[in-house]
């Protein structure tokens, strides 16, 4: 089943176009990694996929239009550039607030487990504003896994994470994938992006240079694309 589909999506800010005609379809249980240089439109693309931003032109179709607006909101989780945390609330209060909105009664055990896993349990009663950038990022990711959405959209999930947390987050995302859930992420870390992908798309100036199955893509080729996209493609 197609879970998300974009048809001829364009997005303009002022006169600048961020996306320039994107067609895309993602099957349930598949993962897509969007690679591309800064300013290529990755964030805009993910925001449109998540439903928070409407395209200037084109269509976004979720589950063949068979799900309600409310289902869409419930089933998609978007981890943005910013962490979407309340700085004055403590770690636990942030987590509990979201759990309550999802009417998840995960019980304290699962909250405790995931916070321990991300090294946040000791800081659970500290206001988020007092945590380091890396810790905030971990909390934002942990919140996503606690909610356990059907579609997880991640914008640069590894930003601000050091090597240790990067690898444990990577394995956590892999676990998530194994549950046959859909994953869309953008990153400029080619190795991690490659590892998590079923499909890889390369975005340049608001257009896909390609979107291919992972097996058909060579990791060296991608590295070349970052350096000089036009020439490598020729």
């Amino acid at each position: 089943m197609k879970i998300l589909e974009l048809r001829g999506v364009k997005k303009r800010y002022h006169a600048n176009s961020a996306l320039n005609g994107i067609d895309l379809s993602i099957e349930k249980g598949n993962s897509l990694t969007v690679l591309g240089p800064n300013g290529s439109g990755k964030t805009t693309l993910l925001k449109i996929l998540s439903g928070i931003m409407s395209p200037t032109e084109g269509k976004v179709i979720y589950k063949n239009n068979q799900a309600s607006e409310n289902d869409r909101k419930k089933e998609i989780f978007f981890l943005g550039h910013k962490n979407s945390l309340y700085n004055s609330l403590t770690v636990l209060e942030n987590v509990n607030f979201v759990c309550r909105l999802f009417s998840r009664n995960n019980g304290d055990a699962s909250v405790e487990n995931i916070l321990r896993e991300y090294g946040l349990w000791e800081r659970r009663n500290d206001p988020v504003g007092e945590l380091s950038q890396g810790m905030k990022r971990r909390l934002a990711i942990a919140k996503g896994f606690l909610i356990d959405p059907d579609v997880f959209i991640m914008d640069e999930p590894f930003s601000g994470l050091d090597i240790r947390w990067r690898s444990s987050t990577l394995s956590k995302i892999k676990d998530f994938k194994r549950q046959k859930k859909s994953l869309i992420l953008s990153t400029h870390l080619v190795v991690e992006g490659y590892e998590l992908a079923d499909y890889i798309a390369f975005l340049h100036r608001g257009k896909f240079l390609f979107i291919k199955k992972k097996e058909e893509v060579d990791i060296e080729e991608i590295n070349g694309l970052f350096d000089s996209p036009e020439e490598t493609l020729k």
Partner: peptide, 18 residues
């Protein structure tokens, strides 16, 4: 402003809350 800060309000937008 507290909602807009760090885009905290997105945690409500991407929840079942209408």
């Amino acid at each position: 402003m507290a909602e807009r800060d760090e885009e905290a309000y997105l945690s409500i937008v991407f929840s079942p809350a209408s």
